[in-house]
C-alpha cells in the first residue's frame, strides 16, 4: 500500500535517473577506482603474484555471491553462508582425516551442503518464515556444530592431492579455482537467463502472487534456489579448506557480509525481482580488491569493516532512490 501516489516532478525524476546511473556504474567505476588507488598506494599491489593470490583468495566469495544473487533475486536472504562454509570445511577435513578419499569426501560435503540449503528453503517456504530468521538460526547451529566437531581447534589437511587440485594446480595456465569460478559463473548466467526456471525467478521475485496465478511452481522454485545456494557453498568450502590447508571452525568470519555486499553493489534490489550475476561478479571483485589492498596497506580490521559497511549503505540507498521509493 503506497503512502502517496508516486510523485513524478521533473526534479525528482532527474534525481532518480541520476541515482540509477550511479547504481549501474558503481560496480565498474568502484572497481576501477580501488584498483587505481591501490596501484598508486602500494608497491606490492600491481604484480602477477599478488593478482593470482587475489583471484584464488576471492574464489570462495565469488561462488557464494553467485548463489546469493539468486536468493536476493527472490527477495530472500541467506545469513548462514559464512557459518556453513566453516562447518562444511571442518566436515571435509574430518572425513579425509578419517581415511575417506578426497573425491568421496568432496561428494559427501556437496550433498550435505545441498541438504542444509534445502532445509533452509523448506523451513522458509513451507513454514512461511522470513528467510533472514531461518538462516540466522541455521548460522548459529552451523557455527556451534563446527566447534563441536573440531573441539575448537583447526585440523590440518594431509592429502596433498586435494591441496594441489583445489589450490595449487593449473589447467591451461590458469589456477584451478579460477576455472571453478568461471564454470559456476557461466552456469549461473545460463540458469537465470536461458531456462524456464530462471525466467520464472524474475517474476517470482517481483510479484510472487502474480507468479503463482500464472502457474509458476512457487515453492519448488524457491526451495531449488536454496539448494543451489547450498551446492555453491559446499564447493566454496572445499576451496576455502584447500586455501587454508585446514578446516577451522571460525575460518571465514566476513564471508556472509562480503557476499551480500557484492550482490548489492551489483545493483540488486533487496525487495526482489532485480539482480544480475554479471554485476555481482564486479561487486565481488571490488570487495576482493578492497580486502586485498587494505591488507597490503595494513588497514586494521575494524576500519575494513567500517569502509565495507559504508559502501553497502551507499549501494542500498542508490538502489532505493533509483527505484523511486517503491
Amino acid at each position: 500500500m503506497t503512502a502517496l501516489p508516486p510523485t513524478t516532478s521533473p526534479a525528482m525524476a532527474r534525481i532518480r535517473r541520476g541515482a540509477a546511473l550511479l547504481r549501474d556504474l558503481l560496480p565498474y567505476a568502484g572497481l576501477f577506482l580501488v584498483v587505481a588507488y591501490f596501484a598508486f598506494a602500494s608497491e606490492f599491489f600491481l604484480n602477477t603474484r599478488n593478482f593470482e593470490r587475489l583471484i584464488t583468495d576471492s574464489a570462495t566469495l565469488m561462488l557464494v555471491a553467485f548463489g546469493m544473487t539468486m536468493v536476493i533475486l527472490l527477495g530472500e536472504i541467506d545469513l548462514s553462508v559464512g557459518a556453513v562454509v566453516a562447518l562444511l570445511s571442518v566436515i571435509l577435513v574430518q572425513l579425509m582425516a578419517a581415511g575417506l578419499g578426497w573425491p568421496l569426501a568432496v561428494i559427501l560435503v556437496l550433498l550435505i551442503g545441498m541438504g542444509i540449503g534445502g532445509l533452509n528453503g523448506v523451513i522458509t517456504v513451507i513454514g512461511d518464515i522470513p528467510s533472514f530468521i531461518t538462516t540466522l538460526g541455521m548460522m548459529a547451529v552451523a557455527t556451534g556444530l563446527a566447534y563441536v566437531f573440531t573441539g575448537s581447534v583447526s585440523v590440518a589437511i594431509m592429502d596433498d592431492q586435494f591441496l594441489d587440485l583445489f589450490y595449487d594446480d593449473r589447467f591451461l595456465g590458469l589456477p584451478v579455482p579460477l576455472w571453478i569460478v568461471g564454470l559456476a559463473f557461466l552456469a549461473s548466467v545460463l540458469y537465470l537467463n536461458r531456462t524456464v526456471a530462471g525466467f520464472e525467478l524474475f517474476a517470482l521475485g517481483a510479484n510472487p502472487a502474480a507468479a503463482a496465478l500464472s502457474g509458476v511452481p512457487v515453492k519448488r522454485r524457491k526451495i531449488t534456489v536454496f539448494v543451489i545456494m547450498g551446492a555453491l557453498v559446499a564447493i566454496a568450502a572445499c576451496l576455502s579448506a584447500a586455501r587454508l590447508g585446514s578446516g577451522a571452525p571460525g575460518s571465514v568470519p566476513a564471508l556472509t557480509l562480503d557476499a551480500i555486499a557484492a550482490v548489492i553493489i551489483g545493483g540488486a534490489s533487496l525487495f526482489g525481482g532485480r539482480a544480475f550475476v554479471g554485476r555481482t561478479l564486479m561487486g565481488a571483485a571490488l570487495i576482493a580488491v578492497l580486502n586485498n589492498g587494505m591488507v597490503l596497506l595494513n588497514v586494521n580490521i575494524d576500519a575494513q569493516y567500517i569502509i565495507k559497511g559504508l559502501i553497502i549503505l551507499l549501494a542500498v540507498v542508490l538502489e532505493r532512490v533509483a527505484a523511486g521509493g517503491r
Binding site: 525466467f199 524474475f202 510479484n207 502472487a209 502474480a210 507468479a211 500464472s214 502457474g215 509458476v216 525481482g273
Partner: peptide, 18 residues
C-alpha cells in the same frame, strides 16, 4: 496490478510467463 501482471518486468516476459 497485484495479480494480473508483473509490473517491473518487460511485456515479453509477462506474456510468456504461463
Amino acid at each position: 496490478k497485484g495479480l494480473g501482471v508483473v509490473l517491473p518486468l518487460p511485456v515479453g516476459q509477462n506474456i510468456a510467463l504461463p
